[in-house]
Every structure is written in C-alpha cells, then in structure tokens.
C-alpha cells in the first residue's frame, strides 16, 4: 500500500513518519515510533488502554486513523513528565498504588489529565462518569478515583 508522510507534534516535538492510509494512530505510535506507553488492549475501542490526547482531547488511538492527525498535537503518557518531574497525577497514582498490573494506567492517566483540565474539582460521580470508557480488569477503580481526588484537592 502506498505510504504517505505524516507530520504531527508528538509530546512537544515535531515528527514526520511514513504511514499507510489504513494504519491507526496506535499502530504508528507503537510499531513505527516505538512510543509504547499507549497499550493495545482490545484494538477495538472498548478498553481505553490506548488513550492519548489529541489537541488536548482524549481519543482512542486504536480508532483514530493516523493520517487524520496531520499537523495536530498528540500527547501520550510519555509526554506527561515536565523537565524530568512526574506530573501530579503520575505521583498520586504511584504513591497511592492506583494500579495492579499497570496495563491500563497510561490510558487512565491521559483521561484523568483531560478531566482535571476541564474540571479541576470533579465530584466522585463526575470522575466515574468521565472515566467510564477506561477498563481496569484488576479492579483498581477505587484507588484511581482517590488518586484523582487527591490531586484535585491539592495534595500533590
């Protein structure tokens, strides 16, 4: 299949990469750029493990055709740290053990990041509702909600 050049901003840096029209953003991130923070769980838009921010909005990278992000800004979990410092959400998730196997964590963090940008002080129900598309099979939901609440409360 014919390859095209895709240019976009990835975690603050411009990247150019050859892709085919059928490749998803997740394919390009993981297989071509070795940005493996976003996970391939269901590859079908069900689990949320592949979530990245596209111009600040959470999207499922497995359902996003790569060529549609031309010229846009993509942030993955790898882009959360600023100057070597963990993001507040990363700190809270780490210190509060908001995961077991950790496979869903990169997606959870990105959705939580988007939530707090829109609503700095979400209620428990608002967190649950906003995060509903992200599955944690280990069942760390309570710790995830508490970690987000702790960040919102300024504990981190």
């Amino acid at each position: 299949m014919k390859q095209q050049v895709l240019t976009f901003i990835l975690n603050g840096e411009e990247v150019a990469v050859l892709v085919t029209p059928t490749e998803t953003l997740l394919d390009v991130l993981r297989e071509r750029l070795q940005i493996t923070g976003p996970k391939r769980g269901c590859d079908d838009g069900e689990c949320g493990a592949c979530t990245v921010l596209l111009d600040g909005e959470p999207v499922r990278s497995c359902l996003t055709l790569a060529l549609t992000v031309e010229g846009r800004t993509v942030t993955t979990v790898e882009g959360l740290m600023v100057k070597g410092e963990l993001d507040r959400l990363q700190k809270a998730f780490y210190e509060r053990g908001a995961f077991q196997c950790g496979f869903c964590t990169p997606g959870m963090l990105m959705v939580a990041k988007s939530l707090l940008a829109k609503n700095p002080n979400p209620s428990r129900d608002e967190i649950r509702s906003y995060m509903a598309g992200n599955l944690c099979r280990c069942g760390s939901y309570e710790e995830i909600i508490e970690a987000i609440q702790a960040v919102a409360a300024g504990e981190y």
Binding site: L86, K91, F93, F99
Partner: peptide, 19 residues
C-alpha cells in the same frame, strides 16, 4: 502503604510489556 518497587515504570509508560 508502600509504593510499588516498579511503580515509576507503570506511571511513566516505560515498563516494557512483551508487546
């Protein structure tokens, strides 16, 4: 409550899963 010994990898996306 102890932080996980490998937890930094999980929250930064640097933990290498097989895929």
């Amino acid at each position: 409550a102890m932080p996980r010994y490998d937890g930094i990898g999980q929250v930064t996306g640097t933990t290498k899963y097989v895929d």
